[in-house]
Amino acid sequence: MNADAAELPPGVDAPVFDEPWQAEAFAMTVALHDKGLFSWAEWAQALSAQVKKPGAAADGHDYYEHWLAALENVLASKGLAATADVDAMAGAWARAAHATPHGKPILLENDPEFRSDA
């Protein structure tokens, strides 16, 4: 977590997520379930498979990396987002972030390889 409980004012809980992307992955999963794209049983099975993979951190610090991998796998298995498409989009965002001046918003259009007709 980002803050120790001793550093927080009385009555304030420690943050649930260490990084904004973790909260976004969590929210996307809930929203996609609410739309009926997968059941909680399917989700639990996918997440469990990721967390049980060799190399998972014993202290759980990589939990949301497994969460994201499980979400990607569920979406791919349902034909909603192919792994290659997810990887291509992640690459585009990484290039856009690298090309964006510090302090400016990261926009997909900042990707030097961005094509608006894609």
Score class of each variant (00 low, 15 high):
residue 99 A to Y: 00
residue 72 E to T: 10
residue 26 F to E: 07
residue 76 A to V: 07
residue 72 E to V: 08
residue 82 A to M: 09
residue 102 H to S: 06
residue 54 P to W: 04
residue 3 A to F: 01
residue 26 F to D: 06
residue 58 A to S: 14
residue 105 P to M: 11
residue 43 W to F: 05
residue 107 L to M: 15
residue 5 A to R: 07
residue 43 W to V: 08
residue 79 G to D: 05
residue 117 D to E: 15
residue 3 A to C: 00
residue 80 L to D: 08
residue 106 I to F: 05
residue 65 E to F: 02
residue 24 E to W: 00
residue 89 M to N: 07
residue 63 Y to V: 05
residue 77 S to D: 15
residue 50 Q to T: 07
residue 65 E to C: 02
residue 13 D to S: 13
residue 16 V to E: 03
residue 102 H to N: 06
residue 98 H to W: 12
residue 81 A to N: 09
residue 32 L to S: 06
residue 18 D to A: 05
residue 87 D to K: 00
residue 61 H to Y: 10
residue 88 A to Q: 10
residue 27 A to F: 00
residue 91 G to N: 09
residue 33 H to A: 10
residue 117 D to Q: 12
residue 111 D to W: 04
residue 53 K to W: 04
residue 35 K to W: 08
residue 45 Q to D: 15
residue 101 P to T: 14
residue 1 M to T: 05
residue 82 A to Q: 13
residue 25 A to Y: 01
residue 74 V to T: 10
residue 115 R to D: 15
residue 4 D to K: 14
residue 104 K to L: 08
residue 40 W to V: 14
residue 42 E to C: 12
residue 96 A to H: 00
residue 96 A to M: 00
residue 117 D to A: 09
residue 30 V to K: 09
residue 89 M to I: 06
residue 91 G to R: 06
residue 75 L to C: 12
residue 49 A to I: 11
residue 36 G to S: 10
residue 62 D to A: 02
residue 112 P to Y: 00
residue 85 D to Q: 13
residue 75 L to D: 06
residue 19 E to W: 02
residue 104 K to Y: 12
residue 20 P to V: 02
residue 100 T to N: 04
residue 104 K to E: 14
residue 5 A to S: 07
residue 81 A to I: 05
residue 111 D to P: 00
residue 21 W to D: 04
residue 45 Q to Y: 11
residue 78 K to A: 02
residue 14 A to G: 04
residue 5 A to E: 07
residue 114 F to K: 03
residue 15 P to N: 02
residue 74 V to E: 01
residue 12 V to S: 08
residue 84 A to R: 13
residue 68 L to A: 13
residue 113 E to M: 04
residue 62 D to G: 01
residue 6 A to S: 11
residue 55 G to H: 12
residue 6 A to M: 06
residue 46 A to P: 01
residue 81 A to C: 12
residue 64 Y to D: 08
residue 2 N to L: 10
residue 27 A to D: 10
residue 1 M to N: 03
residue 81 A to F: 08
residue 24 E to L: 03
residue 14 A to T: 07
residue 84 A to Q: 14
residue 36 G to R: 12
residue 32 L to D: 07
residue 51 V to L: 13
residue 100 T to W: 01
residue 75 L to E: 14
residue 2 N to Y: 05
residue 62 D to C: 02
residue 97 A to D: 11
residue 71 L to W: 02
residue 14 A to Q: 09
residue 38 F to V: 12
residue 95 R to D: 03
residue 113 E to I: 01
residue 23 A to S: 12
residue 62 D to L: 01
residue 43 W to I: 07
residue 38 F to H: 09
residue 9 P to I: 14
residue 25 A to H: 02
residue 42 E to R: 14
residue 84 A to E: 15
residue 15 P to D: 03
residue 117 D to P: 11
residue 44 A to V: 11
residue 104 K to V: 09
residue 65 E to I: 08
residue 48 S to E: 15
residue 17 F to K: 05
residue 87 D to T: 00
residue 10 P to C: 09
residue 24 E to T: 04
residue 75 L to R: 15
residue 87 D to S: 00
residue 39 S to R: 12
residue 35 K to P: 07
residue 65 E to A: 07
residue 36 G to V: 13
residue 44 A to F: 10
residue 14 A to M: 04
residue 28 M to N: 02
residue 36 G to P: 11
residue 8 L to Q: 06
residue 9 P to Q: 15
residue 59 D to N: 15
residue 94 A to N: 11
residue 51 V to E: 06
residue 65 E to H: 04
residue 61 H to L: 13
